[in-house]
């Protein structure tokens, strides 16, 4: 950049003042042209509604209430969020989804590792496992309502496996299992997406490293631990953070499959009901604000946690680089030895 300016400056030293003015003018124009639409809309669609929402959370209002008839109630909505059992209690359900997210990430990571080595039909498997992510929510809801219905698909499979169909629970009604049923659907739907992201990251790791490590006698698990995992830790961390946020804001599976019946109403499902069915807009806004605070707190905690975990990352990286160098040297030595062997 500066190099360009110097060169051009030398070319036309006489009109330098005018040039820089027009150049800067052009620069400003470009910045405005490139950023103005997205930025305006970002403010209009994110920060403005966010501010409005915080304001609404202090009022008792319905959607149809005119602005001057809204009643200011102070902190009452926030007190209600914590007092009503259906609001804050719904956050407990997030724990189910967090366990699900953990299983999902481990499964995705395992699959991604298998599939990034050469496997027969690898592309077919990748495509297949990503596919559920492409089915729209309503169809998912319908598929799984059918899947879990008494005496239908899931019961049949279990009957083939030797379970007595009489003893099986109602998968979507029995409160002991219905949340797990929904979490399983969530894993089914999203693990392929995580897997493809992980494959992308793993494929960009230098393949020579694996070969070198294998020559060195490392097994697959050691390769995974020493080479793959450190190389993709950024995307793994990002996925963990996003999955915690996702668990706190779980919505679609319970909404489309059970509509929150029988104790499957997650925080957002309840919030949606409060806002649209009972028209308590102020209370729903307060719920949204509370959740947002929780999400920010969680993210902050996780960031600190990962900073703590990876605080040695720099030195680890160095040893990783050292290891890379060592592996290369050893590979070269092995090659030389091999050649010697051939010659002998």
């Amino acid at each position: 950049m500066t190099g360009t300016m110097e060169q051009e400056g030398k070319r036309s030293r006489s009109g330098f003042g005018r040039w820089i003015r027009s150049r800067q003018g052009q620069q400003l124009l470009i910045i405005v042209a490139f950023m103005i639409i997205p930025l305006t809309l970002l403010i209009v669609f994110t920060y403005f509604p966010f501010g409005e929402m915080v304001k609404f959370s202090f009022y008792k209002m319905k959607y149809a209430t005119p602005i001057d008839k809204r009643k200011f109630v102070g902190w009452q909505n926030y007190i209600d969020v914590f007092r009503r059992d259906d609001c804050f209690g719904a956050l407990k359900l997030s724990l189910y989804y967090m366990v699900g997210a953990l299983i999902q990430l481990v499964l995705a990571l395992y699959m991604a590792t298998i599939l990034s080595f050469k496997v027969k039909g690898g592309n077919f498997f990748k495509g297949l496992m990503f596919f559920p992510f492409l089915i729209n929510g309503i169809a998912i809801g319908f598929i799984f309502k059918f899947f879990y219905t008494r005496g239908f698909v899931f019961d049949t499979i279990l009957a083939w496996c030797g379970f007595n169909p009489e003893n099986l629970p109602y998968w979507l009604k029995d409160q002991a299992v219905n949340n797990w049923s929904l979490v399983a659907t969530s894993v089914w739907r999203y693990f392929g997406q995580n897997m493809v992201l992980f494959i992308g990251a793993i494929m960009s790791v230098d393949a020579e490293l694996y070969e070198a490590a294998e020559l060195d006698g490392a097994n697959k698990w050691q390769i995974f631990k020493a080479i793959i995992l450190p190389s993709i830790k950024t995307i793994v961390t990002l996925n963990i953070i996003l999955s915690i946020t996702g668990s706190l804001s779980a919505f679609e599976q319970p909404y489309v499959i059970t509509n929150g019946a029988n104790g499957t109403g997650t925080y957002f499902v309840i919030m949606n009901q409060i806002a649209h069915t009972s028209q308590k807009v102020g209370l729903a806004c307060a719920m949204a604000v509370v959740l947002l605070v929780i999400i920010f707190a969680c993210t902050l905690l996780q960031k600190l946690f990962f900073k703590y975990v990876f605080r040695d990352a720099e030195s680890e990286d160095e040893s990783y680089k050292a290891k890379k160098a060592r592996l290369k040297a050893e590979k070269a030595a092995a090659k030389a030895q091999k050649q010697k062997g051939v010659q002998a």
Binding site: M53, F56, F268, A288
Partner: peptide
């Protein structure tokens, strides 16, 4: 591009990733 306030704008934008779409649904 290099311009003043780029970092702030960038941070503001990153913040929106954490905001679930459901949250701003009502005011929108």
């Amino acid at each position: 591009l290099r311009f003043r306030g780029k970092k702030i704008i960038f941070t503001l934008c990153v913040g929106t990733i954490l905001l679930p779409g459901m949250v701003t649904l009502i005011p929108l």
